[in-house]
Design a protein around this nucleic acid. Sequence first.
DNA 1: CGTTCCAGGGTTAACGTTAACTCATAAGCT
DNA 2: AGCTTATGAGTTAACGTTAACCCTGGAACG
Lengths: 336, 336
Amino acid sequence: MSATMMDIARDLKVSVVTVSKVLRNQGRISEATRKRVLRRAKQLNYQMNWVARSLVTRRTYTIGLLLPEFTHSFFAEVARTVAETVRPHGYHVVISCFEEDPEQEASEATAMLARQVDGLIIATSQPPRRLDLFKRIQERKVPYVLIDRLIAGARACFVGVDNHAIGELATEHLIDRGCGCVAHLRGPEVGIATERLEGYRRALARRGFRTESRYVVAGGHADDTGYTGMRQLLKVCPMPDGVFCYNDPVAIGAIKAILEAGLKLPQDISVVGAGNIHYSDVLAVPLTTVDQGTCRMGVLAAELLLERIASKQSMKTRKIMITPTLVERESTRREA
Amino acid sequence: MSATMMDIARDLKVSVVTVSKVLRNQGRISEATRKRVLRRAKQLNYQMNWVARSLVTRRTYTIGLLLPEFTHSFFAEVARTVAETVRPHGYHVVISCFEEDPEQEASEATAMLARQVDGLIIATSQPPRRLDLFKRIQERKVPYVLIDRLIAGARACFVGVDNHAIGELATEHLIDRGCGCVAHLRGPEVGIATERLEGYRRALARRGFRTESRYVVAGGHADDTGYTGMRQLLKVCPMPDGVFCYNDPVAIGAIKAILEAGLKLPQDISVVGAGNIHYSDVLAVPLTTVDQGTCRMGVLAAELLLERIASKQSMKTRKIMITPTLVERESTRREA
DNA sequence: CGTTCCAGGGTTAACGTTAACTCATAAGCT
DNA sequence: AGCTTATGAGTTAACGTTAACCCTGGAACG
């Protein structure tokens, strides 16, 4: 079908190896031969077959990115930065999304290993039910980096954000702005959400408040749970005057419920989200949120993985914790 | 490193081919041998090397998805549905984003071809400056499907939405709702935006209005251009009482500008977007928009590609046009 | 008893490329 | 002249699988 090195070699009556050397700029080749090879390659519209090359070099220059979902803008952002970071190094990214299903996560990871990826970046499902998966990856000696979601006790590289700090930052900001009753719309039962809740608790305690369970409402990842959760909070007496939301989508849902109830932001209730997703600043009420350094996370994970791929012997595992920062917009009061 | 069929064969004193046959469920193998092979494979934690298999079968079971950007939720949605559609057929998806840069598009496509993808789905950059790219793909006889963005005159399969209809639907809806002065925040200089503008013009003409250039403001893909564009429109005299926005992000930006100016939606101005992106219904003012059948687009493109991959001889090219539908929410007036 | 047939394997040669050598030839040096 | 050295190739054998064919021994058949 398409031209191979053998075609070029036959046409030019040289050996395939000579062609290979020219195309890789390796070995000693006379200028004359080099030019002939390159010309013929261009004429035949030659394209290297990476499958064949990978088989012998044992490198695919492909890294696998395993995400819970595409459409969550946090993960989309991660995917973009990872791809951009590895591209200059000649790597490609295969993305797969397992929809928060541990079984699918395992099967997707297996498929990637079978396709001989050079490394993996994984935002693993929570709670991690398939620890055998990581044992298998480790056995194959394929380097991998966990991102965003840590596996407790695993000896693996990790890049994520300090979720305790997120909770503390958001809650203290609300208190600083004069909120005397700060509620929390917490996320699902996963480590990262629990840590944010923990940060919320610590901040309250440090400022002399008690955590009251009626002000902590369980929820999920998406905006619908923020909406229903907020409606629930509005019925609590006394009504909270500040809400720390697990993430921005939840905060968006919460804001919708608040406005629907005829209340004003931030006069009646202040809201803080987390994530600093793209739309959070074009909302009707631009969202005060905690930036978790999404781009830096992608870049750092990618760089860490490249480093691990380059250094054959397993370096000691590293855990990188990004320090979150508060982004003040208009969903929290200005005055103290 | 990791076990190969040869390891299994050596251990069991059978030939590699026997192992291969067992693992593929092909050829005649006695139950006894089959069991021995499978057991040993499990013991060794054997994983098929797809690179080697692909080299000989000439199929990678990988399809390439070439997108202008990840983070735009439309493309993220497409990516998700494509991946979900092809997964049951054993295919994987390699996504690459070229950031609206034709050169990068060409180089990413080349890299995918080199990696021997079985097919390509491309939302090509606009205007398509690298037609040679598609000639090269065609020469290689790799099936491909264009999505969302068509190349004028190309003999290629295509799945997209009827952009004229989007413009007409949105504009007529605004007129039906009593808007006497409908403006348009148009997108960038690409075919798809021009078609929406054309639909806007046609609808105006059909209802007896003239298109006035001062009510058509140029912009881009993102919300910032919607914001600045709307601020510009608000200064026009008389002020429009209805705006058809090129897409939802632009509409979100426009709404922000409108609210900032102290005007009310939909009482003072009605806004229609296009795309029906996820956040459009959780905004402070839920957005009336035109749904472009994003999921169906992904599914149809994937199915079309699979069909083309399956049927070796090139079937006749097909162009599938999705009919958009209006999704009425609260950014347009109810009363006529 | 010879022939056919089939189950259950095995052999050989790819697939397209690269790693690791080897081998002429000519040039440079003593 | 005889030795080393550099140059510009070529040879051979992988990499891990599969396609396409070939073989053997026994059962079935007339």
